[in-house]
């Protein structure tokens, strides 16, 4: 659905919007949600540094221990939480993730963030919004809106984790097949 160029352009646009809506990036902290939100957050930070000369701290926020679906699967390995030295208190924290779907991941991230400190505001940036929300959550920055059916799976591949940049749309096999 998306190639490397489109991903780059989408992040670039998100970067601009962030600057516009946060008073030039003042007090912004980017926190990527593992796995693929983390490289996306660092790319955004790098882009802001390169193109605008603005240093925005980036880190990661693992939400595994806050998930509401832990009992549906075997215990998952924990991701890494790395909060930049400035902390989150009084900051504008922008959560970064690859795909926004049910909204449950973001709900867990908000809980996890609340245990880390008290940000002034929390915003959400996603590369792909595929719809089908199950919670009253919306993204502040969206790279691409992708209308999907629930039977489809959106797969984001990134060079850092998968060796290439790409967004794929796959049809999940029917249950029972």
């Amino acid at each position: 659905m998306l190639g490397a160029d489109e991903i780059r352009r989408a992040l670039s646009r998100i970067g601009h919007e962030i600057l516009e809506r946060t008073d030039g990036g003042t007090d912004v902290v980017l926190l990527g949600i593992p796995t693929r939100g983390v490289p996306l957050a660092s790319r955004l930070a790098a882009r802001l540094a390169q193109t605008e000369g603005i240093e925005v701290p980036a880190g990661s926020l693992d939400i595994t221990l806050y998930r509401d679906d832990l009992r549906l699967r075997p215990a998952r390995a924990l991701g890494h939480t790395e909060v930049p030295d400035c902390g989150v208190d009084g900051k504008v924290v922008i959560l970064v993730d690859d795909v926004l779907y049910s909204g449950r991941t973001v709900r867990a991230a908000l809980d996890a963030l609340g245990d880390l400190g008290r940000p002034r505001a929390v915003q959400l940036a996603v590369l792909v919004d595929r719809g089908h929300r199950e919670l009253p959550i919306r993204a502040d920055y969206v790279g691409k809106n992708l209308p999907t059916s629930k039977r489809e799976a959106v797969k984001v591949l990134l060079a850092e984790t998968d060796g290439l940049d790409s967004v794929l749309l796959q049809v999940r096999p029917e249950a029972g097949q």
């Binding site: 693992d62 832990l70 390995a77 924990l78 939480t81 245990d115 880390l116 400190g117």
Partner: peptide, 23 residues
């Protein structure tokens, strides 16, 4: 290794203002 790595993450969480997790 999985236990040790998990413990490593959890040990870092223990340094937060609210060490309690809802898990």
């Amino acid at each position: 290794i999985s236990i040790l790595d998990t413990a490593e993450e959890l040990a870092r969480l223990a340094e937060r203002p609210i060490p309690k997790l809802p898990t």
